[in-house]
Design a protein around this nucleic acid. Structure first.
Lengths: 336, 336
DNA sequence: TTGTACGCGTTATCAT
DNA sequence: ATGATAACGCGTACAA
């Protein structure tokens, strides 16, 4: 049924090497190729990946590492979308993908990944300014692509978006609407996205000559912290809030509603991500669309490039973002 | 740096076999063991999984197959939670997990999984009444655990909940509240959960002596179909709707709101899953809690049992569900 | 074009 | 208790 290369060789009356060539595209005479192919088709042979890996040194299996807080992981569709994108692209060129989530310490996870041996390369989410797991992978000999990146990751290959610029754009949008006290519920401190979005917000405010004093409240990229943060900002009498992501904005909306204030009349609200639900909020949420699935796809493709040309140096991909204006900032505009 | 078993053998002045014994727990004299251990610790050696698998026949790597519609996958936290549970449990006993999503046809996916060779076993979501991928895995020699199951899967190992019973319980809850026209927006037809929940709903209605004519509308387990289905049912003048899952119920809530009707005064609403957001809806949603993460954990443990005792016959685990009553059916009750 | 033969890093079965 | 040595299944230089 299953059989080995030797079995096929015996059945087709050639050497094992020839069968191997037929399978892997070596040079074989048309006649023998046909003969071997016939046997091969009838015999539903499956090459043994372990043996193949051992002999050739490459397995075609890549690793995906998403070492994030479980609560975030299964609340935020962000990760599912990213995974989906990677899976889509990887299924083209890789024979399989292994997955590591955050159920062990970063050190342990790193150890397991490196111990895996048969991995061709890894894609790892790099959201934190400090991350021993990412450091370890970059320091290893394993071809590595980051999703997100720290400033220090200059020699690494990564896929990311320009958070600073995008945050600047949203904030400027609020400024242009005539909002005078624009608050910001940040993302989780210590994350690249969190910090960079603060920088972008700050930059836009500076340019507009507006003070941000008392207008920045720390959040956690989730709904609860959005509600709490917005409550503080509402006390500070803001007329607009830029939330570090959509989940945070949803929480902010809760807080605004709890005070019977109107969006956007009393308070304008903006988020970041453009997740599915953002368009379905009431009112629909102005936000920054970042192609999350695209980031996954690009990360996979970048890894493929790295594998194809290991000497080609690091590849960096910065994907574009798009400001999606909906009724949470501009009352009259219809949702798209 | 990395090194092989032979290197370690040379460094510690013993044979490769002895080093292997030290690592894998064979019988070695305390003295040599200590000597080898010393070398081993200083040398951050990592056994080569490919070689190990080739020689021993087992890899410790398990597969997870979630071949579902991408749109469902990254909208519904259900899958993330399931994955999380599996990952948690697997990280204890397995060296790694490979993941297959629905980016290829079921036949192609099956081929790839079986071709993988080094898999110790697989966990596969079995939601559809007909599924060649599940059939193929069950027919293969690969130890397989289903999450969900078809009636025909009598000889298979699976983890599931009793959908019929749970749906019966929710519906009976609505009956007891005095609702007279209880509608049902079904799950996707052709899925076990969808069909079984219909059966449970029907059973409860029959028992209460209520007709279900015109009260069953097909849904798709998502928000959009929930809104559409609820609209139809509202036209049919229902005073309660049991939705096949929480996402569907969220859509139904949209539809009820659009008509300026009150929940639960005009229409009572119930869902299924008890996802995070269900408690945060306005009003909080009455629903059936099924331990999704627990199902993942149980599936992993079941697979481990299967691997430990291949002759032990199929293992079946039916996890309990719990009716969670919130304000969408009983106005006065506070959310838990 | 085809076959021979060696090596990949382990495990496992023998002797010793 | 330990050390040779034979698998494991495949890729691939090298020879023919």
């Amino acid at each position: 049924m299953a059989g080995t290369l030797d079995d096929l060789a015996a059945l087709s009356g050639v050497s094992r090497a020839t069968v191997s060539r037929v399978i892997n595209g070596g040079s074989v005479s048309p006649s023998t190729r046909d003969r071997v192919m016939a046997v091969l088709e009838s015999s539903n042979y499956r090459p043994n990946l372990a043996a193949r890996t051992l002999a050739s040194g490459r397995s075609g299996v890549v690793g995906i590492v998403m070492h994030v807080d479980p609560r975030l992981l299964f609340q935020d569709p962000y990760f599912s979308q990213l995974l989906q994108g990677m899976s889509d692209a990887l299924s083209e060129g890789a024979t399989g993908m292994m997955l590591w989530l955050g159920n062990r310490s970063k050190e342990e996870t790193l150890e397991r990944i490196l111990g895996m041996g048969l991995l061709g390369g890894v894609i790892v989410t790099a959201y934190n300014l400090e991350d021993p797991l990412v450091d370890g992978l970059l320091a290893s000999s394993l071809p590595t692509v980051l999703v997100g990146h720290r400033r220090a990751d200059r020699t690494a290959s990564y896929v990311d978006v320009d958070h600073v610029r995008a945050a600047d754009t949203v904030t400027s949008h609020l400024v242009k609407l005539g909002r005078k006290r624009i608050g910001h519920v940040t993302g989780r401190r210590g994350t690249v996205a969190g910090e960079d979005r603060i920088v972008g917000y700050q930059r836009a405010m500076d340019r507009a000559g507006m003070s941000t004093e008392g207008l920045i409240v720390d959040g956690e990229f989730n709904r609860a912290s959005g509600a709490a943060g917005a409550a503080v900002l509402l006390d500070a009498d803001v007329d607009a809030i830029f939330c570090a992501n959509d989940a945070t904005a949803e929480g902010a909306l809760d807080a605004v509603r709890a005070r019977r204030l109107a969006v956007p009349d009393d308070v304008a609200l903006a988020g970041f991500d453009d997740l599915e639900f953002a368009a379905h909020l009431d009112p629909p949420l102005t936000t920054v669309r970042q192609g999350i699935r695209d980031q996954g796809i690009e990360a996979a493709n970048t890894l493929f490039q790295l594998l194809a040309d290991p000497e080609g140096g690091p590849r960096r991909v910065v994907l574009p973002t798009e400001l999606v204006i909906r009724r949470s900032t501009v009352g009259g505009v219809s949702a798209r």
